[in-house]
Design a protein around this nucleic acid. Structure first.
Lengths: 368, 368
DNA sequence: TCTTTGTGCACAATCGATTGTGCAATGAGG
DNA sequence: CCTCATTGCACAATCGATTGTGCACAAAGA
């Protein structure tokens, strides 16, 4: 019974395990095979015509036209998955950030994403939520997806999983948080110099007792900034006592707690240096709660500029990282390495930083 | 000469076209075949043991153990590309936003990304740069990559390309910017009600001449907010003259220009309503430049709250969208639809909005 | 007329993992 | 001793696009 057989065939098509996903998505995607049949040629000819290899493989102009027309008519779009599978090239770039909602990282995401798009790469975004463990898991997933490159702002406490990628010849670019003496390509601000200059500014304004609201200790940016601060203080014949450094995360709540602790325990304190935008926000909240006036009762200086910085009760003096440049440079480096396959020779790329002087630092010398 | 032959073979391996990508990436990835060989079983047995199908296919416990051990020893990670190709399931979620660096969209990106990660999906991020044309191109690319769902904040002027996806049974969730009377699932704030309440507040404070700094006209949030404002004014026996609505984009520069235009052309103006965070920023800049004091000389109210809002020269009264909820709801809806394959019945999901009263609105009644 | 050169295209293998089916070997029942 | 069921695994097809190779046919030269 041919009818019975036919129905069996259709039933298998619809309900066999491998086609189950089809149910409810019943649009048939146009495959190369369909184009080839419509044009009356073989798969190989269709493929070559579509990939512009016509002349190289002696496809006649007439046949080429036929194929192109058929593809256009059927609005054929080759499956990237199949292409990736066959060519072993995914044109996929992984981007891992500790917190995409932080404007700093969001800007980096934007620059890298748009640059990648313009170069024919797609971006797989992942958020590590400031956890090294999640970061490692995410990287494993991204590797399974066969990304061709990775831009990452690592949590910054471990680097083995990253250097392993590097050893396996995966293009990797670190942004913001790097590691000292690592072979990994890193794009970062001149943290140390910036912190030194900023501290110089505080000192020049007569400040001798400066409280530092630090981020995650052990991370490169945090420790570099601390080093810059120490350097400036030492040059001025001062030093940074242990109690003057508080905080343990690049977060608002850490900044808040650290500020309260400093103000309440250090009576001589005249200035605060917050080592990130989020920390600065926490500091602002604490200062407001304690009823202190900026800059009359306490001066404040923060890392990372912000559009609102100049409109604050007391316009904030900030260390402005060039986030756009940071992101663009990272994007440029990773796409170049992915496209050429050649490694960059320079490992550390420092982009300069600008200090935006506004009104949150009081001049102690003048007022005496 | 066997040596010669051998070298020929190696040369082919290295330089034949399809292996060219290999040069410089020379690590051999562990394939299922390697595991099978190491365990001394066939490909199929290895596959079934690894996918937990052992009992279903009567693989002996001993054999299963052998395979698992071999896979572990070789640290085998199956190629997602090959799996996707075979299963026709990519477990890929597309996310398209007009500007990832805008904190509002960045927050949405974060919520969706983390939720997707937790459910085994990976996120393909794309930035449409507020251009419908780019948006369409990006969607085409994402489709070619066979995403299984799409979360998008569309530019909002065209919807055909989105409804086409919907017609083809692709799960799509719109965030923030929706379209009136569209079958597309949309997660959005209660723009109209929020704008009405906010305007009520202005009116209650005695304001009769309110300038509106609008975003992109024609987009759902913009027009809904305008409608809410009109409704409130009409209830109060007032109306919104054409000249009192300025601006043409959700950007800082548009807000800046619109503010200058309003202040310079409308002498009776007592309050400004900025329809987004970026617009509000532009307004602040213009007001500062013109030397006006908030709220004494001009009152201001903006859509979108911001961590810095309360620390501004004049703490800003804002309409706070619940961005986190917006993102989480979108994430939940899209993953549910992708995983169950069933469409949500509710099309419009409105999340409530809160008005945060601070100090940027002057009470005209009281001061007279 | 037979060979040679060149043109135009089709056939089949391949990428890595999954899965329906088939085939031995072993044991149980008649 | 023969049949039949059960266990344990291997073979081969498949997903969609790419690419090396080979085979016709036609024109040109001997």
């Amino acid at each position: 019974m041919p009818t019975g057989d036919d129905r069996g065939g259709i039933a298998r098509l619809f309900f066999s395990a491998q086609f189950r996903w089809c149910v409810g998505i019943m649009q048939k995607t146009v495959k190369l095979k369909d184009v080839a049949e419509a044009a009356g040629v073989s798969l190989s000819t269709a493929s070559r015509a579509l990939s512009g290899q016509a002349s190289r493989y002696r496809i006649s102009t007439e046949t080429e036209r036929l194929v192109l027309a058929a593809a256009d008519r059927l609005s054929f779009r080759p499956s990237q998955v199949a292409q990736s599978f066959r060519s072993q090239q995914t044109r996929l770039l992984g981007v891992v950030l500790p917190d995409v909602s932080n404007p700093f990282f969001a800007s980096i995401a934007r620059e890298v994403t748009t640059h990648a798009e313009d170069n024919g790469y797609s971006v797989l975004l992942a958020d590590s939520r400031e956890s090294t463990e999640i970061e490692q898991k995410l990287i494993l997933q991204l590797r399974a997806r066969e990304i061709e490159g990775l831009v990452i702002s690592p949590v910054g406490l471990k680097k083995e999983h990253l250097e392993k990628l590097h050893d396996e010849k995966m293009p990797v670019v670190l942004v913001d948080r790097g590691f000292p003496s690592s072979p990994l390509v890193t794009v970062t601000s001149a943290h140390r110099e910036a912190a030194k200059q900023a501290t110089d500014l505080l000192v020049a304004n007569g400040h001798r007792h400066i409280g530092v609201l630090q981020g995650l200790p052990g991370t490169f940016p945090n420790d570099q900034r601390l080093a810059g601060i120490r350097e400036a203080l030492e040059e001025a014949g001062l030093s940074l006592s242990a109690g003057m450094v508080q905080g343990d995360q690049f977060s608002e709540s850490s900044g808040y707690r650290a500020t309260r602790r400093l103000i309440e325990s250090q009576p001589e304190l005249t200035a605060l240096f917050a080592l990130s935008n989020q920390i600065g926000l926490g500091a602002l909240r604490a200062i407001t709660e304690l009823g202190k006036k900026v800059p009359d009762e306490i001066s404040i200086l923060t890392f990372d500029d912000h559009p609102y910085s100049e409109f604050l009760v007391c316009p904030m003096t900030t260390v402005k990282q060039n986030v756009k440049e940071l992101g663009q440079l990272a994007a440029k480096l990773i796409t170049e390495e992915m496209m050429t396959g050649k490694r960059t020779d320079r490992k550390i790329h420092q982009v300069p930083v600008r200090i935006i002087e506004r009104a949150s630092i009081r001049n102690l010398a003048r007022s005496h």
